Simulated assay, not measured.
Amino acid sequence: MDIELARTFLAIVSAGSFVRAAERLNVSQTAVSARIRSLEEQLRRPLFVRNKAGASLTPAGESFLRHAPALVQLWERARHEVAVPPGRRAVLAIGAELSLWDPLLLRWLLWMGRAAPEVALRAQVGQSETLMHQVAEGILDLAVLYAPRYRAGITVELLAEERLVLVTSPPGAKGDAPPYVHVDWGPDFAPSKGLGRADPAIHVGFGPLGLGYILAAGGSGYFRMGAVRPHLESGRLALVPGAPEFVYPAYVVHAETTDPEVVRLALEGLRHTAAADQAEVPPDAMPGSGPALPG
């Protein structure tokens, strides 16, 4: 079976309609319909019922949904194993949300390079929904996210409970208070939750962008402690006394069908780096070796 047929089937299930699935896959609706028609002919059963609201699964579609993710994951795992570079024993692919790549993902790459030099690494950053989809399809072995959606066949583990802290640059030349820069950390973090800052000077949807702005132009805002710690130590930023702090949990997700030994080692590295970041341990003091893959 053409693996793209299973991918298209899963895209429709996720999107809820043929039209939205076509947009996500960047193909025409005609192409999506043709793929599903071909899949239904091979299975000899109708998989979807179209209606005004979109598309719903038939009983046969519900049955195929239990197997489609494993088909795609098996194909991606085969691609990974075939593509192992010379001198390496395995390939591990990881993704992280944009706000998590520095320092967590960067430190993890350094840890893995020391602990498992025989493993080739592939790392990328992206949005939560895209990363979850890639884990489900086997394109990624693991992903680190803030708000994962629980799905069948996906293991979700709490990695760290980060703190969002209010920091500020020094007052301006005239002693003016720096402008507040609001970072969109999600619906549970909003001015209406008691921050008392309903009219921010700037509103951004990406933490590193907001942090870069206040470092360059001055300002205040809520950011992850792990991201601002170096600037607090250098004196470029300071914590706002008495400001409330917020817990912002990060999770690691992985498919249950991925290589257990490789995933076990990767999870150990992620736990080490997350714990070191929360304990304010400098990167060069983190454990640099771990149990190698069994030979």
Score class of each variant (00 low, 15 high):
A123Y: 09
A177S: 11
A55Q: 03
L47C: 07
A143Y: 01
R151S: 04
L131R: 02
L65K: 10
G153R: 05
A227G: 01
M225N: 13
R44A: 10
D176G: 11
A255C: 08
E76K: 10
T168M: 12
A70Q: 14
L98D: 08
P69D: 04
E81F: 01
L142M: 12
G196Y: 07
G235L: 05
E81P: 01
A190Q: 10
L211E: 07
E23C: 00
R163N: 12
R149V: 13
G221S: 14
P171G: 07
H254G: 09
R163L: 14
E256K: 13
L131V: 01
P46N: 02
S99G: 07
R35W: 06
A34N: 13
L215E: 01
S220P: 15
I94V: 15
L145F: 03
H133S: 15
Q127Y: 11
P86Q: 12
L239R: 10
M112G: 13
S14H: 15
P86N: 05
A55G: 02
R264I: 01
A275F: 08
H67S: 09
R163C: 06
Y248P: 03
P171M: 04
I12W: 11
E129S: 14
A243N: 07
P103A: 07
N51A: 12
E40P: 08
R50V: 09
N26I: 03
E256L: 10
P200Y: 07
N26A: 02
F246Y: 15
A78D: 13
S38P: 00
A31M: 02
K174S: 09
V119R: 02
V204S: 00
R264F: 00
E268V: 11
A34I: 01
L57E: 03
G175W: 04
E62A: 12
V13E: 09
R45C: 08
A275P: 01
Y146I: 02
Y146D: 02
P260E: 06
R7M: 11
L131D: 03
G269F: 04
T8F: 13
V32T: 03
V252N: 01
L293H: 13
G221Y: 14
Q127W: 12
P117R: 01
L105G: 03
Q134A: 04
G61P: 00
P244Q: 15
L239T: 08
A250M: 07
L25F: 00
R66L: 12
E41T: 14
R271G: 06
Q73M: 06
V240S: 00
K193H: 15
P291H: 10
A136C: 04
S63L: 14
I12D: 08
R149P: 01
E161G: 08
G194Q: 03
A279V: 06
D2K: 11
S220C: 15
L10G: 05
G290F: 05
R20E: 15
Y146E: 04
N26W: 00
F18K: 01
T168K: 12
A115Q: 05
A53M: 15
G95V: 09
L270H: 05
A243D: 10
A279E: 14
L5Y: 15
V253Q: 00
H80M: 11
M112Y: 09
V27N: 05
L121A: 02
P260V: 07
T168N: 02
D284V: 14
